[in-house]
Write a protein that binds this DNA or RNA. Sequence first.
DNA 1: TAATTTAGTCAGAGAGACTGACCAAAGGAA
DNA 2: TTCCTTTGGTCAGTCTCTCTGACTAAATTA
Lengths: 145, 145
Amino acid sequence: MTPEPLNLGLLLLIPYRSMEARVFAALAAAGFDDFTPAQARVFQRIASGGSRLTDLAEQAQITKQSAGFLVDQLAKAGYVERVPDPTDARARLVRIAPRGAQAIPLAAEMVAEVEAEWTAHLGAAHVAQLREILTDLREITDPYA
Amino acid sequence: MTPEPLNLGLLLLIPYRSMEARVFAALAAAGFDDFTPAQARVFQRIASGGSRLTDLAEQAQITKQSAGFLVDQLAKAGYVERVPDPTDARARLVRIAPRGAQAIPLAAEMVAEVEAEWTAHLGAAHVAQLREILTDLREITDPYA
DNA sequence: TAATTTAGTCAGAGAGACTGACCAAAGGAA
DNA sequence: TTCCTTTGGTCAGTCTCTCTGACTAAATTA
């Protein structure tokens, strides 16, 4: 193996993918197997009070058409529901539906489990540092934040 | 803005996406606009002496069929070439072709530029730490490494 | 030599992403 | 008010990417 040093981009992608795969697998094992990763990437960005489609699209960095497509599927599977926005007759809010709400604690549990594994490998101080640095980095890399 | 704290997964994804978009845009601006992000994710994993399709697929975590599809397009655009593997008549090595070789220093330049921006924001010590922690984390999150 | 594994291709299908065109409500400006 | 622009979202069509399943050929193992 040539340990050619990886660029920071790839170094970020590798653990992200690992985390996503673990959470996805845990949900699938618990019976939440009727959604796709693309749908999940939209779902996890829904704010607690509901989000507008346009906002979801911006955050997930996809077009509103793509977001609408994914939200429709999530709605069909019972993970979200679309309700009229009381403050704007053009808009509709995407809200977490009961089935979606059931999945959230399971996902959170697996995230915690993975983070615990990372902590076991890196040490608590390094994990805290990682989170701190990434949060700081978000300020200049998140076009939406 | 509700600053709901993001999970580590999302915190990793955000800067990755930012880096990828910057490099992609820089290459496109320099005339290397005839390839897609998916193709680039395979391309950047080609080892200096050439890689087998199966290895590329494993590292990019896609099927060998998908990898073959992307490599074919990269080959048509002149970024890579496929040569017989001298050590195994079944296999062919995917190698960087001249046009691909031209793109690499440009990409590296943009990676360096982005990292410099990150350093300006985070400080050199934190960037070094980030790289160190991520490299360490790779040991338990990279199924290929 | 025969059986199995490994490297890769071919064919077909589905998901996800895009662009372009469009409609309806909201917000200003005249 | 009335008109114009902006904003939230949909509809239609297309392309890219990814997958599964079935297959060939070379290498390896029994």
